[in-house]
Nucleic acid binder design. Structure first.
Lengths: 221, 221
DNA sequence: TTCTTTCATCTTGTATGGTAGATCAAACTT
DNA sequence: AAGTTTGATCTACCATACAAGATGAAAGAA
């Protein structure tokens, strides 16, 4: 997002609150108020209020006029549709890249996968997560639609909350293997295989979601 | 978007400004200020400020800290990528609906097309535009991803600004003919034809964009 | 007891005053 | 004349005070 207000207090509050929400320090259903947060951060209500507005538009908060503001519960159907949107766009991206692969494509993807293997070997899950994201964003860049990835990124916050609930079960080995299949198909210009591999790669999240709903029913609508 | 603040002044300002921007009453590059708009609507600066924040997050305004706020110029690349997103999602939607068409599908789409023909015959272009939108949103509903359409709708605002610049050239006849082809393929469960028809239907906008950039260069980045 | 009503106390919404950064033109210096 | 500095005047940012709706518990009526 082109956040053009980085120096402001409101920006600091947005970043802090968003982090708290995604990492589940603020749990779905938690009630917060402008004065509450203002006091906690030692600022006035005004910048907090503006942060609330921004986070509400991102689907993380629900401002209830004259009542209170709550951390939005995760909507299973919303997550499902976010996945639908992501799969639609990423499939189209992979088609474009595979249809006319640029010269650099194979090398760039291979290097990213090598980095991922290094991070996996070092058990650095945070770095692996970053590299995983970078892999997908790079594909968007190669397709000339990096902005489209930003859109996915916005909606990925909901998914990230789910992901955070299931920390540690991420099998980076399998993800890397799937990345390799995708990269190979793309580099060869095999559109159909690339699309199928991407769908398989993204499809695994569905099971994860259902499991998570069972484990943490209070966090979902 | 689940705008949950309909009774407020800020909401009225958002609606009014968004309408002004989409209809080009406020032109790309126009400079506005909180006090300016506040005075014009007879309200205080506070709700105007909040409206600015919301519109900035929707990509219609650019708030420049300590300087001024301008109506964002239209980014040709942004419009192109919005089209990419829309096509990705709508193609996936049409696939889903065509793969397993519900019983009601054919009848629902036929009725919508009939309404469109009536609006076209009556030369009611505003009503036709609404029905055109409804056709696409209905497909999303039939695919069980109506929320995905809301996403398209948000990003469609940029396209709507372009569309408004080229008023009158909308050939509703051709659009209706294309809708018929789509509806028929979907009803028959012919996935490949439905997808191709949808791509062709959405693809026409590219030419329109290039023409518009030539005609109104000042409104684009 | 059970239902109704009142009212203290939450909340967000709005108005307004002051602050500091950004801009630009006029005055000044060289 | 050309470049520099100053200062008036914009702007958005923030703090604060007040208004009004929503809530829930306590007091009162049946």
């Amino acid at each position: 997002m082109g956040e053009a207000f980085e120096g402001t207090i409101a920006f600091r509050v947005v970043v802090a609150l968003r982090d708290d929400i995604v990492t589940m320090a603020l749990k779905p259903g938690d009630v917060i108020s402008e004065s509450d947060i203002a006091g906690r951060y030692g600022v006035s209500r005004q910048p907090v209020r503006e942060a609330f507005i921004r986070l509400a538009q991102q689907g993380l908060l629900l401002i209830r006029p004259k009542r209170a503001t709550v951390v939005k519960k995760i909507s299973p159907d919303g997550v499902r549709q976010s996945r639908f949107i992501r799969e639609s766009i990423e499939v189209e991206i992979i088609r474009r890249v595979a249809t006319a692969p640029a010269a650099e494509t194979a090398a760039v993807l291979a290097e990213l996968i090598a980095d991922q293997e290094a991070a996996s070997a070092a058990n650095d899950s945070r770095r692996f997560h970053k590299l995983d994201e970078l892999f997908h964003r790079t594909l968007a860049r190669l397709a000339g639609v990096e902005y489209a990835w930003q859109l996915i990124d916005d909606h990925k916050m909901q998914l990230d909350r789910v992901r955070y609930l299931t920390l540690g079960v991420s099998s980076s080995q399998r993800a890397i293997a799937e990345h390799k299949i995708i990269a190979e198909a793309v580099s060869k210009g095999d559109v159909a295989s690339a699309e199928a591999a991407m769908r398989a790669h993204l499809g695994r999240a569905e099971l994860l979601l259902n499991q998570t709903i069972e484990d943490f029913p209070d966090y979902f609508e």
